[in-house]
């Protein structure tokens, strides 16, 4: 079971980044075998279609569950198509977000919760 968290850095102590398409890294944790890996988000510097590139990358990495903040319509359609469960409401560090998910505190997204380009507006 691979769980992916959108983050500012590469490891479990990094702060999460709630902007799915524009975050810097995806930290991928498999609690069953205790592995932690990370991938650079190819969407972070895209001029457009950032969420599409981001969703493509985590689908390619074989992720089962995504923990993030906001997901736009384009990325949501890819995540659904790839069968990736998406939960929103992450805060704190990557490790903290994982614990919150495991405690059942993060809501599963049934539809996109952001408009396109909303990730560009982050400061």
């Amino acid at each position: 079971m691979k769980i992916c968290i959108s983050a500012c850095g590469k490891d479990p102590d990094s702060e999460v980044d709630p902007q799915f398409g524009r975050c810097n890294y995806f930290v991928i944790i498999d609690p069953d075998i205790g592995s932690v890996t990370s991938i650079k988000n190819p969407g972070s510097e895209a001029s457009g279609g950032a969420g599409i590139r981001a969703a493509e990358a985590i689908a390619g990495a074989g992720v089962n569950t995504l923990l993030t903040g906001s997901v736009g319509p384009n990325s949501f359609s890819i995540l659904s198509e790839a069968g990736i469960e998406t939960c929103s409401g992450i805060r704190g560090t990557v490790a903290f977000a994982l614990r919150e998910y495991q405690a059942g505190k993060l809501a599963v997204l049934e539809s996109p919760n952001a408009s396109t380009h909303s990730g560009i507006k982050k400061s």
Binding site: A46, S47, G48, G49, A55, E56, G62, A82
Partner: peptide
């Protein structure tokens, strides 16, 4: 322009 996404089993 990222208008195409390659999933493991299809292109969107």
């Amino acid at each position: 322009y990222n208008a195409l996404a390659a999933l493991p089993n299809k292109i969107l």
